[in-house]
Every structure is written in structure tokens, then in C-alpha cells.
Design a protein around this nucleic acid. Structure first.
Lengths: 342, 342
DNA sequence: ATTCAATTTGCATGCGCATTCAAAACGAAA
DNA sequence: TTTCGTTTTGAATGCGCATGCAAATTGAAT
């Protein structure tokens, strides 16, 4: 079985040049005569030669080369979540467009992030993007020592020296509260993520703060896990109590849709009339006609571009200062909320 | 700036052994005394050493080693689609569990698959999974020559020598037709993918064949592109004609939900009563209370496991015979269809 | 204590490429 | 034609690791 791969030596022989020449032909900006390069490229194409990226990053390991492994590690949780799958799709496209490949690692929980980074680092990734999670101080230090730029997406780490791109969750929460207050709501519930979820906590804190400024206290707090089912169950619990909320703010659209479906189709409630519903993210499903979910939109496209831009810049300039970008959420008005005081 | 990475030589020195010993300590099954291994591992952990996967696959390039690059290339389109993001999430977990990493490449259209494979092959991937697309004969040949096992997911290639895992789309279409016929439908429409989409064509052919066996001719054929929006638009077109369908079969759940939302919330129709709606895939959204979409379920978990199992087997045994697995779809009865003849 | 097989170890080498350095080829000016 | 600066070229080297091979060590059996 002939599975020997074609090396630069094979091409060199075919083109009647040295191996160095072949290497140069494939290195933009290298010192090589046009005629030689053409001859090499022709031979390469005849033989079906492709430079071996592994060997390439191997030899460039010693010097400060532009491209090293050519891979960016991405650590992600909850890939099934529309918000994340959209983000991954966007990141992937942007990373590829910039000439890198994406080495993807999915983890079940935040505690696995460090292990994931260790795995990825064995591949000498040039940089890493971590979604909705943080790394340990120790891991951050390791990355810095190894010169691997890190980008936190949907999270930030105050103490640590790592880049981050995220939405201002506290302000987003405030925005939500503001809107519900203006519409005159008073019996307000919040459906968040698990107890230790930073994102959820931030959204809730902004939300609750703003409410309390108007003297309103949160009526109920329900805990979910960012799935539709958990939103659905939260709704069932919420509406089974004596006192019913007249507005519900959910830490994510998926959970809000869970609430919506439960309320409308299982409890026979009328969204907007019986209670206002507010989500967070603005996933595509939120705008489906039957959902028409009012929500706080994350400027996901811009966030993705920013994340990749900054990471690429940092990969090219290791000395770059840590960059933390915070985007503002925007209220997207749809049918799930009443707009004026009754 | 000290960004020199720790090599096996550093560990060797620290542990007072040779570099070979360090290498052996990290190679399961290598000939090394337990005492030595422990000493090496201790030193390694002290120094924060991790073997360099790149160099590793570099040196093992020459021999028939078990693990080569340790990476599996995955080419995917339409990552935003719930069906695909779920699949990617599952694949990722399974691949990692088997000790491989996933190098992800997203493409916009099927024509980019060959280029994607070329990119991935530069990284000397040990195997590849291609979702919902096929590769050219030439590329298949190249892979075979290079000894890179390929797994087609959601597609198969009769002429080519590549593994595949997919659902029996023709049979799925028949199943759909069967069900609608039993319920006594006669004015039946089909909403598919783009004209040259193989998956859609297969589902439609099975569907139309079964209909014609009962002397029913397809009333309308609408073309979509597997997005919610395209389903929605198809519905608007379908119901704007004089003759209205009494049943609609969509080539994917996402499109079916587009039809559902348009019909119910924009046209004021009552699903099930005014027409039956049938999807394909059984994505989570199909079972949401407000959707209750009857659909043909793909056994996605089993398909994923099978795909990874076969690929891994093939990576370990390059001589393995080409394996093509076809799963049967299952009708999942929900509220969007009437069940008996009126 | 001696022998011999089994186990463990280190040395040396190569994986495929990029790059350094010195030699060669070229080109323009004299 | 000669000279000198410029460009192009090839030989040699190392990136970090795994492994073949031979030397060294161990341990069991005599």
C-alpha cells in the first residue's frame, strides 16, 4: 500500500532544484527568482504536493515566526444552545478568513476548562478563545508564560491578564428593569442560570438594582440552566403560586421561550396580556412570529469580529496590552411585553 | 521575555535521566521501569511539562504508529442549523472521548469542501468527517492515497470508496407519505431544499413515489434552503394560491416550523385542522408545546456514535473495508397532523 | 560466585520543513 | 573585459520527539 506522502524533496527533485527552493516557493516574501518559483509550483501541483503544516510549525518553533501552528484553540460549553452555535459558526468563519484553523474542544462544565486548555496546548495553539467560562489563575499564568494569547468570550476576568469581549450584563439587566418599570409592572420575577453562574448573576444584579431604585422588590427568583426545559419548568413553578408575577425576565432567550411555551400552551395564559416576558440574547427564534419575544440583543456579529480581531492582533504582537471590550445590549421591542401602564 | 517552552530535555535533566526516558514515560506501553517513570512524571509535573503533540506526530510520521497527529478534521455547512449544531456537539464529545481532537472547518457551500479538505490535510489529520456534503472523486482518491479514512455523515457516495452514516432518506419520505395517506390527505405539498440538494431529493422521491402508489400526485413543490425564513416564505406562497394544500411535508423541521409560524401567526390558520404539517429530523424545537410538530426522527445519537466508531476503527485499521450504515427514520406523532380520515 | 535471559537505559537518528550562511550567478557600471 | 554590489541558490542545521539498537543493569537460577 502506497501511502507515502509527497515531501518537499520529491518536488525538489522533480523541479530540479534544492529542497530549500521548494520551501521558499511556498514562503511568501522569501528570496527566490520568479522563474524558479513557477517551476517549483508547477512541479508541486503535478505531484499534488501540499506543505506539511505540522513540520512547518515544527521547524519554526525555534524562531519568532509569524505563523506558528496556525491553530486557534476554542473551548466551548453548551454548544447546542443557539446562541453558542451561532457564535461558533461566526468565530470559525472569521478565524478561517484570517488564515487560522480552529481546534475545537467542548466541555461539560466550567471545571473542565483547565484540562481542555492543557489538551489544546499540547498542540501548540497560537491562541485560545474560551467561551462563557474563565480559566484558573494558574492556567492564565501558564498561557502568559508560554506566550499564548487568550480571549474570553462572554466573560471577563478582572484580576487576570487576559483579553475579553462581552456584553455589559449589569447594564443589560438594568435596561430590562427600566423597561418593565416604565410599563408599570410591579410583580416581577427573574429566571436565571445556576447559582454560581457569573453571567446570570450580573444580569440579575443590574436588574434587581434598578428595580429597587424604584422601590420594587423582586417577587420571585427561579433557577434554570439555560435550557428550554428549565425555562418551562420555571414557568410552571412560577404560576403555581398564589401570587402571580405580571412580568418575567429571563437570563436567556431559550429559557424565555420555555416560559412562553409553558405559559401559553400548557397553562393557557396570554403572553403580554397576562404577563410580560423579556429575554436576553436575541437569538433567531425570538423573532419567530409566534414567539415575538422582546429581548435584550447582544451584538453578536460585532462581538465575534472584535474577539477575532483582538486575538489575531495579540498573536501577532505578543506585547500587546490586555484589551477588554464591553458592548452594550439593546432592547428589541416585540409583542411579548405590554408597553404602557395599564 | 521568557517564553521558552519546556522540552523533554529539560525534564530529563531535572530527573537525571535521558531524553528517551522522558519520552518513554509518556508513551503508554513503552519499556520503562516504574521507578524511573514516576521520577520523570514528578519532574515533568514540577516543571509544568506537556509533551508537544506537534513534535510527537512529526517523529511518528515515518512509522506506522497508533496515534499520528491526533486530530480529526470535520467539515461542516450550516452550523447554525440546530440539527447540525447538535451533531457537532455530539461528534466533538465522542471524538474527544476516544482521544482525538477536532479540527473544525466550516464551509458555505458544497463546492468548498475540496478546498477545506486540502487545508485540513496540511495538518496531517488522521481522519475526516464531512457533514452533508460529498467530496470529489479526485479528493476521495487523494485521501485514500494518503491513507486518510473519510466518513460521510448525512450523505453517501455510491461510486466512492468512503464510509458513510446516514438515514434512509427515501424510506423516510415514504414513511411520511404513508402516514399522510392514511389520514386521508389528498392535496399534498412538499417543501424541500434547493434544486440540487441530494438529501432533499431523496426524501422527496420516496415521498412522491409512495403517493403515486395511491394515485396521488404532489399538488405543490416549494423550494427552500433549510432555514426558518425559507419555510415561512414557502408557506406564504403555498397558501396564496387558489387551491390550498391539506398537508405539507417539509424536508426539515426548521422549515416546517417556518411554515407553522407563518400559517398560524401570519395567516391565522389552524395547524392540524386546516392542514397537517410534517417535518423531518426531530430537533428539540419540534417538541416544544406550542409546536408539537409531527416529524420523522433521525436517531442522531446512534448515528454519531456509529460515525465515530467506524472512523476510529478505520483509523486504526487502514485496511478496513468501506462501511456504509443506513438508519431508519421513525415517525414521531405529535399534534401537527390529523390522524384519521375526516 | 557465575551465567544467562529479561528488563531497562542511553545514544544516535530521522520525521519535513524553514532558515542561516557562504558560494554562485547575475547585472550594471566602468 | 573587469569589478563590485545584488540577487538567487544549495548545503547544512535544528525544531521536539519516538524509536531501533546496543550497552548496561537487574534478577533468577545454577
Amino acid at each position: 500500500m502506497n501511502k507515502k506522502s509527497i515531501t518537499s524533496y520529491d518536488v525538489a527533485k522533480a523541479a530540479g532544484v534544492s529542497q530549500s527552493a521548494v520551501s521558499r516557493a511556498f514562503s511568501p516574501g522569501a528570496s527566490i527568482a520568479k522563474a524558479t518559483r513557477d517551476r517549483v509550483l508547477q512541479a508541486a501541483s503535478d505531484l499534488g504536493y501540499q506543505p506539511n503544516a505540522i513540520a512547518r510549525s515544527m521547524s519554526s518553533a525555534r524562531i519568532e515566526t509569524q505563523q506558528k501552528s496556525g491553530m486557534v484553540g476554542v473551548v466551548v460549553t453548551r454548544l447546542q444552545d443557539p446562541f453558542f452555535s451561532r457564535t461558533i459558526a461566526g468565530l470559525s468563519q472569521n478565524i478561517q478568513a484570517r488564515g487560522w484553523q480552529m481546534l475545537l474542544f467542548t466541555v461539560e462544565s466550567e471545571s473542565e476548562v483547565d484540562a481542555a486548555m492543557n489538551s489544546l496546548m499540547q498542540y501548540k495553539i497560537d491562541g485560545a478563545i474560551i467561551m462563557s467560562a474563565i480559566l484558573s489563575d494558574q492556567m492564565a499564568e501558564t498561557c502568559q508564560l508560554r506566550g499564548i494569547p487568550v480571549m474570553l468570550y462572554n466573560r471577563s476576568a478582572d484580576g487576570l491578564n487576559v483579553n475579553s469581549v462581552q456584553i455589559d450584563n449589569v447594564e443589560g439587566g438594568r435596561l430590562a428593569a427600566e423597561f418593565l418599570l416604565e410599563a408599570g409592572h410591579e410583580r416581577i420575577a427573574f429566571v436565571g442560570g445556576e447559582e454560581d453562574d457569573e453571567t446570570s448573576k450580573a444580569r440579575e444584579s443590574g436588574f434587581v438594582d434598578r428595580l429597587s431604585e424604584d422601590g420594587i422588590k423582586l417577587l420571585f427568583h427561579e433557577e434554570g440552566n439555560y435550557t428550554f426545559e428549565s425555562g418551562r419548568e420555571a414557568a410552571l413553578r412560577l404560576f403555581s403560586r398564589n401570587q402571580r408575577p405580571d412580568a418575567i425576565f429571563c437570563a436567556s432567550d431559550v429559557m424565555a421561550l420555555g416560559v412562553l411555551h409553558a405559559a401559553r400552551y400548557e397553562l393557557g395564559l396570554e403572553v403580554q396580556k397576562d404577563f410580560s416576558l423579556l429575554g436576553f440574547d436575541d437569538i433567531p427564534e425570538a423573532s419567530w412570529p409566534g414567539h415575538s419575544l422582546t429581548t435584550i440583543r447582544q451584538p453578536i456579529r460585532r462581538m465575534i469580529v472584535e474577539a477575532v480581531d483582538v486575538l489575531v492582533e495579540n498573536m501577532q504582537d505578543p506585547e500587546m496590552l490586555t484589551r477588554r471590550t464591553s458592548f452594550a445590549g439593546k432592547l428589541i421591542l416585540r409583542g411579548s411585553c405590554r408597553r404602557t401602564v395599564l
